[in-house]
Design a protein around this nucleic acid. Structure first.
Lengths: 70, 70
DNA sequence: ACGTGATGTAAAAAATATGTTACACACTAA
DNA sequence: TTAGTGTGTAACATATTTTTTACATCACGT
């Protein structure tokens, strides 16, 4: 079973959405800014539900925000 | 912040992939069949990584396997 | 009736994600 | 310089996911 890693475009998307801050994104999706920070830095990957919420906050499909690379 | 719920097409996709058993899917993605069973029954939603692996096992984009409905 | 395979379910423990609090640094504005 | 804002990070606590083990039911073939 191949091991993969999850990458994300959060930093880029925040930038493209009017320099949205980590705090603003955190408020939109209902977590703390530390959680956003950790996910953005790929310290760990979010739950599926949180991933959906983040994608929704950017009005993007999930797979344009998070990608799984083998 | 609207609460949503996550639905999945695992049962349908297993069926469409030659009656793939829960055990076979579990082996493909590296978890136990109980985990597949629980996710299929929507007892809880999987981690993002596991969700990607399951989608990959069916050769489908993630959002055709899991959907987030508000 | 019997054995086997697929599935549903449950409890406890382990692993991982998230929250809380706190401190630090860089940058900008006053 | 001082205050404020955005960010990085760490330790500890809590919540959620996942594993392990075990037992049950149902359908099917022999």
């Amino acid at each position: 079973m191949e091991e993969g890693s999850i990458h994300n475009q959060i930093r880029k998307l925040r930038f493209m959405h009017g320099e949205m801050t980590q705090q603003e994104l955190a408020d939109k999706v209902g977590v703390t800014r530390q959680t956003i920070n950790a996910i953005e830095a790929a310290k760990y990957s979010p739950s599926l539900e949180l991933a959906f919420k983040i994608a929704h906050a950017f009005d993007k499909p999930l797979e344009e925000v998070f990608t799984y690379e083998i």
